[in-house]
Computed example of a mutant assay.
Amino acid sequence: MTAVSTAKTETHIRELPELTDPSKVAPKDARALTRLFFDQLAVLEEGTPKYQYARNTLIEMNMSLVRFAAGRFRSRGPEEMEDIVQVGMIGLIKAIDRFELTREVEFTSFAIPYIVGEIKRFFRDTTWAVHVPRRLQEARVQLARATDELRSRLGRTPTVKELSELMCLPEEEVIEARLAANAYNSTSLDATINGAEDGESALADFIGTDDAALELVEDFHALAPMIAELDERDRRIIHMRFVEELTQAQIGEHLGVSQMHVSRLLSRTLARLREGMLTTH
Rank of each mutant, 00 (worst) to 15 (best):
I175M: 05
E172Q: 11
A191R: 15
G195D: 12
Q142N: 11
I193H: 09
T192V: 15
S188H: 11
R145M: 06
E176K: 14
T159I: 01
E149C: 00
E197S: 15
E149S: 06
L136Y: 13
E165K: 06
R178G: 15
A177V: 09
H131F: 07
T187G: 09
L150Q: 05
E172L: 05
E172I: 05
G155K: 04
L136C: 02
E173Q: 10
Y184L: 13
Q142F: 01
G195C: 13
I175L: 10
T192Q: 15
S188G: 13
A196M: 11
R156P: 02
P158R: 03
T192M: 14
A144E: 12
E171C: 02
R145S: 07
A183V: 04
A146M: 07
A139P: 02
L136W: 09
E149L: 07
S164M: 01
R140K: 12
L136N: 06
E197I: 15
C168E: 14
R140T: 14
V132H: 03
A139V: 01
V141M: 08
G155P: 08
I175W: 01
E176Y: 08
I193F: 10
L136D: 13
R156Q: 10
R135N: 07
Q142R: 11
I193E: 11
S186N: 12
S164N: 04
V141Y: 10
N182Q: 12
R178I: 08
A139R: 08
S186D: 14
